[in-house]
């Protein structure tokens, strides 16, 4: 038996919003420690890794590990049936081929349940080692979304350069070029408004702006986004999911021919 209850169904809605641009379907691996998801987009350029810890749920029970392959379009339709203030419970029997979503209004006067068929998905799992990154940048998530949106008007690629002074985002194309420099915040009153750089060595990498834009669909999950970079390895874009977990996007860099 698997059962996970979350008082704020809006978190689940936001998680889905954050992954459905990149993925059509995904397997939710449920264990005693929580719910994990790892999936690459169809082109194998980016990867989504999500973790929701069991202790972040209001109730969590997982007697046996289960992997639930879900069509994210169908899941989106079902979660649209939940009001933001509803309590959501996901339930499945061991070895089940369906999952049930139960939505309860805060006063318990309306209770709805939606059963969704599960899918058997062939999954490729990548082993991502724990890595010390040469540069770790934290900035307001809204600012990052704005930068990605603005620069994607110029070209298909965004160059991210990180030095101890700050971080620079650049793009160039047919209409011209654009550079956005963010300096490290000197006085930090509010952490969620700060730009911070932890740098071991400067890094410059090039990425497809289309994927960066997709990652920013997670903006509503967190005030802050963290970018981790090292020379010639994938970028990691991480958003915390409240006190319950995180979503990380990995993006392979573009390399000069």
């Amino acid at each position: 038996m698997f059962e996970a209850r979350l008082v704020q169904s809006s978190i689940l809605k936001k998680v889905l919003e954050a992954i459905k641009d990149l993925l059509n379907e995904a397997t939710f691996d449920c264990s005693d420690s929580g719910i994990q998801l790892q999936a690459m987009d169809n082109s194998h350029v980016s990867l989504v890794s999500m973790n929701l810890r069991s202790d972040g749920f209001d109730k969590y029970r997982c007697d046996r590990n289960i992997s639930m392959g879900m069509n994210l379009g169908s899941m989106t339709k079902i979660l649209k049936c939940a009001a933001n203030e509803d309590v959501v419970t996901m339930k499945a029997q061991d070895n089940a081929d369906t999952v049930t979503f139960v939505f309860e209004s805060p006063n318990q006067e309306k209770v709805s349940d939606y059963e969704m068929k599960l899918m058997n998905l062939d999954q490729e799992h990548l082993g991502i080692p724990e890595t010390e990154y040469a540069c770790v940048v934290r900035l307001p998530a809204g600012e990052f979304a704005r930068i990605c949106r603005d620069l994607s008007q110029f070209g298909e690629s965004v160059v991210i350069s990180c030095t101890k002074e700050g971080v620079k985002f650049s793009s160039a194309g047919d209409i011209g070029s654009a550079n956005i420099k963010l300096a490290q915040t000197s006085n930090v009153d509010k952490e969620e408004l700060a730009v911070t750089v932890e740098m071991q060595e400067p890094v410059t990498l090039t990425f497809a702006s289309r994927y960066l834009n997709s990652f920013t669909k997670a903006t509503s999950l967190s005030n802050v986004v963290q970018l981790s970079m090292s020379p010639d390895v994938p970028l990691v874009v991480e958003y915390r999911i409240g006190e319950i977990g995180h979503i990380r996007y990995y993006l392979a860099p573009k390399i000069e021919d």
Binding site: G127, S157, K254, I255
Partner: peptide, 14 residues
């Protein structure tokens, strides 16, 4: 123009 890499070039399958 730079060439887009694949994630398989960086991480092994497990």
């Amino acid at each position: 123009t730079p060439i887009q890499n694949d994630l398989h070039e960086f991480y092994a399958l497990v």
